[in-house]
């Protein structure tokens, strides 16, 4: 069943002025429950504008958005309730922390939903464990934490709202490799444990390739494709034509193929590459796809 569905949505900035810009152009998409979708596209491709439609921060200039089969802008009084179903974590979310303690900051979202204290407390401890925030840290001021810890607290603040869909915009931006890996694996864990839908917006194909079950590619406001990583990376050439870098490992395999070696065209992680090469080298023959 689809949890997010759009019907011909378009979004136009500054309509009627010389600065008119079509940021999202007639996008139709249906995202099923339980997917972990990697959203890619370069700056200005419309991917950030698109995701802001999914929780009603932006109203489409044309077209309709359905969340959990309910039309988003049909009844304005339902907006807040629907918004709670779709949690959105912005870029550099640590800059939204404001409470005295980590505990209170994570509580902000659940409190706004009108939950009772016992439920709020349960959810805070639950998400804190999931993102790796210790009991001791909960009592600290968020401003005392390290960059990576702050980021995890901010993400926990949205996760604690237990949205059906969690959208993260560039959650690893500006972090070092260790921080990046921590965030990626906590997203993967959250997805596996809760089974909820997750949308991960990223510039890094390598990151997306590591975790996504589906990939959504945006290009100049339009939906370029929405498919499984296998199918998307099969189109590596086209992706490079629209200015997106495919994972380094995929480029290596495409070049091997160009040299006349028969390799499968769906290699996009180091794990898979290792597996394919081992079977080829050990059998001394061609790999089975």
């Amino acid at each position: 069943m689809s949890v997010i569905k759009t019907e011909n949505i378009s979004y136009i900035y500054s309509d009627g002025t010389p600065f008119r810009k079509v940021a999202v152009d007639n996008v139709n998409i249906e995202i099923n429950e339980g997917e972990l979708v990697g959203v890619i596209g370069h700056t200005g491709s419309g991917k950030s504008t698109l995701i802001q439609h999914f929780n009603g921060l932006l109203k489409p200039s044309e077209g309709k958005v359905f969340i959990d089969s309910e039309e988003l802008w049909a009844d304005k009084s339902r907006l807040k309730a629907i918004r709670c179903k779709v949690g959105l974590v912005f870029q550099y979310p640590e800059y939204q922390l404001f409470e005295e303690t980590v505990y209170k900051d994570i509580a902000f979202g659940p409190k706004n939903m009108g939950l009772d204290d016992a439920e709020i407390d349960k959810r805070i401890r639950d998400t804190a464990r999931l993102v790796g925030i210790s009991e001791e840290m909960l009592g600290k001021s968020p401003f005392e934490l390290s960059g990576g810890q702050k980021r995890r607290v901010a993400i926990a603040g949205v996760m604690a709202m237990e949205p059906k869909v969690l959208i993260l915009d560039e959650p690893t931006a500006g972090l070092d490799p260790k921080g990046r890996n921590q965030i990626l694996s906590l997203i993967k864990e959250y997805h596996e444990e809760k089974g909820n839908t997750v949308l991960l917006v990223s510039h890094s194909m390598e990151d997306v390739a590591k975790v996504a079950t589906k990939i959504l590619v945006m290009n100049s406001g339009r939906l370029f494709c929405y498919d499984t990583p296998d199918e998307v990376f099969r189109r590596a050439k086209e992706l490079e034509e629209i200015g997106l870098a495919v994972p380094q490992i995929t480029r290596v395999f495409n070049r091997l193929k160009a040299e006349g070696i028969s390799v499968p065209d769906n290699v996009y992680t180091v794990d898979r590459a290792e597996e394919v090469l081992l079977s080829m080298l050990k059998q001394g023959g061609e790999a089975d796809d």
């Binding site: 070092d176 490799p177 260790k178 390598e206 994972p247 380094q248 490992i249 290596v252 180091v270 590459a273 290792e274 090469l277 081992l278 080298l281």
Partner: peptide, 15 residues
């Protein structure tokens, strides 16, 4: 030490 290596380096290392 919490650092990474390029994907190709990692692949060669694992092989």
């Amino acid at each position: 030490r919490g650092l990474d290596v390029p994907q190709v380096t990692e692949l060669a290392y694992r092989l």
